[in-house]
Design a protein around this nucleic acid. Structure first.
Lengths: 238, 238
DNA sequence: GAAGCTATGTACGGTAACGCACATAGCTTC
DNA sequence: GAAGCTATGTGCGTTACCGTACATAGCTTC
């Protein structure tokens, strides 16, 4: 499976074989450049997006302009669950956090596919439950864990959704996602660099010691990862 | 509609008339005493619960014993969404936070009802989306808002799920839900009492000025309330 | 290769919440 | 009505992060 295959999205890869011939022509490749807004708070969505190499942040932007990431979606998931959940919109924004590609499907189409009420629906619902766990754990993490731990968690979440060990990502951007000061991220990143877990410069972060990050982060990362693995096995029975 | 009517749960009230005769015998009244655990992290659920007068907290308990509330469910919703979402369990705990009653339905039954893929399913999914918004906003609130604001939000969320203006609730318990120190809640509650918004003593809180609480809390309360009202109209078309 | 922009580093006072220790005071139990 | 428990109040040093200001240094552009 190469990067030009929609099935490099794990959700699409888990589609039953029987549904694939119908789906293939319904999917449209799209570039997802850094910073692109896939949907805006309260606006009706036109498509759902299945990232293949891009990573998308779901974030809430407060009245005063400050923001906080609610969850992150990469090649394991889909952006725009409110379409099939029935709300059409949500009070959050989806922004491309790491440039790449993906495929999208028209709003009406995904609703029709969902409403077939078969394996596709159950797959999407299990994914939604995994996403719920991620949001819940984000709430817990924001309450109880240090910036150091949260940075590790965030790097690992991103790493899991990319191939390779390099992230293209400024500290300013990370700060926006975590909802903290840029200076705070600088301090935390410096520590990680000093103990040799990462190396970075001007918007490029190399992860040198993944296990080291895992040892340093809070339990939140593992809880979420375990739940994704449980709910979304690499290959779903067809 | 009195308290002995299952339809004092708004979700049940919104059921299509056509489904009601089938549902009624499938529901079982249960008392929900303070502190009762409806489900435990990672455990398969035996029932879903539709509170009528009780309030249930969904919370995550960390390895070190500290906890944080992820969302709250009262007479507007249902506890145990993972049953119909397909995961069977979630990494959180559901605890009765305010004693009362509710009705429950067996796990297998709710799955069958959901899988009819009709109005019941779409109602439950819209509720789930509202719950997702609450969780997301909890994450944002934990990140950005003060304990004072969060206490107001929490009191309002509870108030919305009860009749009357009195909460039976110690500061210790509130602290556990919010994931903060009990002393912090004492301080915040003292301020609210001094300016005349609440009056309390030994586990009983009277809200004297609801509008005052709304003025003092953060935007999170209104965002969530608006989304619940949007997704769960008082009467769903039948 | 000079100028300008962007990303990162550093410093410092302020503050919200923490951990801990202990005081008070209202119910309950006998 | 004394003893004991539970809920609430208070004090104090500590910590993590904030807001702000400014310094450095690596790309980019001409």
């Amino acid at each position: 499976m190469n990067a030009a295959d929609p099935k490099s999205n794990r959700l699409l890869a888990a589609l039953p074989e029987a549904d694939w011939p119908r789906w293939q022509p319904l999917l449209e490749w799209v570039d997802m450049p850094l910073g692109e807004v896939l949907y805006e708070s309260g606006r009706t969505l036109s498509h759902v997006y299945f990232p293949t190499s891009a990573i998308v942040s779901l974030l809430y932007v407060m009245e005063n302009g400050a923001s906080a990431e609610i969850a992150v979606v990469g090649n394991e998931g889909v952006v725009g669950i409110s379409l099939f959940m029935g709300g059409e919109s949500t009070p959050s924004r989806a922004v491309v956090q790491s440039a790449g590609r993906g495929v999208r499907m028209r709003a009406q189409t995904i609703k029709e596919e969902f409403n077939r009420a078969g394996p596709v629906m159950h797959l999407l619902l299990r994914y939604t439950q995994a996403l719920i766990t991620q949001m819940a754990q984000t709430a817990v993490c924001n309450r109880h864990h240090t910036l150091d731990q949260q940075l590790c968690r965030w790097l690992l979440l991103s790493l899991d959704r990319l191939q390779g060990s390099e992230l293209t990502m400024t500290q300013e951007l990370i700060a926006n996602m975590l909802g903290v000061r840029r200076e705070g991220v600088t301090e935390a990143a410096l520590k990680l660099q000093k103990i040799g877990l990462i190396r970075y410069a001007r918007g490029h972060i190399h992860v040198l010691d993944r296990a080291g990050l895992e040892a340093r982060t809070c339990e939140c990362y593992a809880v979420v990862k375990k739940e994704y693995d449980r709910l979304l096995p690499d290959r779903t029975a067809t």
